[in-house]
Design a protein around this nucleic acid. Structure first.
Lengths: 198, 198
DNA sequence: CACTGGATAGAGCGTTCGCTCTAGTCCCAG
DNA sequence: CTGGGACTAGAGCGAACGCTCTATCCAGTG
């Protein structure tokens, strides 16, 4: 009664395919630079389906795409931080991982949230809010790791602010320069900064 | 024979008005989110004038806008860094200044280069290159300040990478959160990081 | 069996996009 | 006075935009 396997899978399938396609395209082309028709075409769904699942139109779809990017990066963050007991080494692993992802996409796939949030402040406020929630969640993950490593709540929270901000900026700089250097340097400096609080 | 004062002033006037308007609008709405007609309308110039000065169209105008943002931030960077002999205090003054600018615009005017570079990697490569040059110039200004304060070339260059990246990221985070906190925290952490090299 | 409602399908709406084009204005050189 | 180049002016092009609309399909239910 709750779940009819094939039916619900098909349903979830189309919807999820649309969101994933939207997220991928908007990550590369930005929110304004990506058209609804392009999304529906590349997702293999028609406009009718798209507006069936997202009656709020482009803005609702964009918000869903931001949330997907949020979840995916939260996952990556947790995995990478959990793999290393020491926060310093975990940060180095994290920046290396981000640099690798950037290289693999020929410097096209930057932060999925950054690309959505620029230029949408006045035109799509829902996206701004979803992005703010993403940043807050990411900071929480980093702060949690630092607290678990023995840092005070205050220090951990402040360090988390700078870690997330620096990662964002270094990823952007790496993308623009088409070089992993900004991320690698940022990793070493963040590790050094964290170590200075011990 | 070279310069006819009134004539050339008028010429430069219209051209500069277009670039300044383009820069201001694209800073808030992004490159793709800003239309040529909106720029010409708000600049008080017609389409004919715009395409007279920028035969390369939107991309050439966007590139000019990036360069203007580059020059303006370079100026701010130099002024702020020159006003304080110690790099640590200068960085605190810089983040405070950026936070104030953001507040004054109701969190709308972020980094003029960031807003242009997102989503234009494949559609407008000229803009990417101009943005890369801007970042490099800014890093040079910061590195120069650090070298003047006695840091080694290597340390100064690496620190400049992180300073610029963190400023970019913190400005974005502050904009999204509509709060000066990310920038203020970033300022203190950057000062601490720089001090750790002494 | 008819019926219902979720899902698919895409033609087409009005608007805006970036850009081209021709005509006209202005000012100075010859 | 006149010719010519720099600049202004805006109508209009084809294409793409976000979105609405009606029509159809189909599995599940009474």
């Amino acid at each position: 009664m709750k779940t009819k396997a094939p039916h619900d899978l098909d349903t979830a399938g189309t919807r999820e395919r649309i969101v994933r396609t939207a997220s991928r395209l908007m990550q590369r082309q930005g929110y304004e630079g990506t058209g609804i028709k392009q999304i529906s075409r590349e997702a293999g769904a028609t406009l009718g389906s798209l507006y069936h699942f997202f009656p709020g139109g482009k803005q609702e779809l964009g918000t869903a795409a931001v949330r997907l990017g949020d979840e995916e990066f939260t996952e990556l963050l947790r995995e990478t931080l959990d793999a290393e007991p020491e926060p310093e080494k975990a940060l180095l692993a994290l920046t290396a991982s981000l640099a690798q992802g950037l290289r693999d996409s020929d410097w096209l796939d930057g932060c999925p949230v950054t690309s959505m949030v620029v230029g949408t402040a006045t035109s799509a406020p829902g996206i701004q809010q979803a992005a703010a929630e993403a940043f807050t969640r990411w900071r929480g993950v980093v702060a949690g790791k630092l607290v678990a490593a023995g840092f005070s709540e205050t220090d951990a929270d402040e360090l988390a602010h700078t870690v997330i901000a620096t990662l964002e900026g270094a990823e952007l700089a790496a993308q623009v320069a088409r070089s992993g250097t900004p991320l690698e340097v940022a990793g070493r400096h963040l590790a050094r900064l964290v170590a200075s609080y011990r």
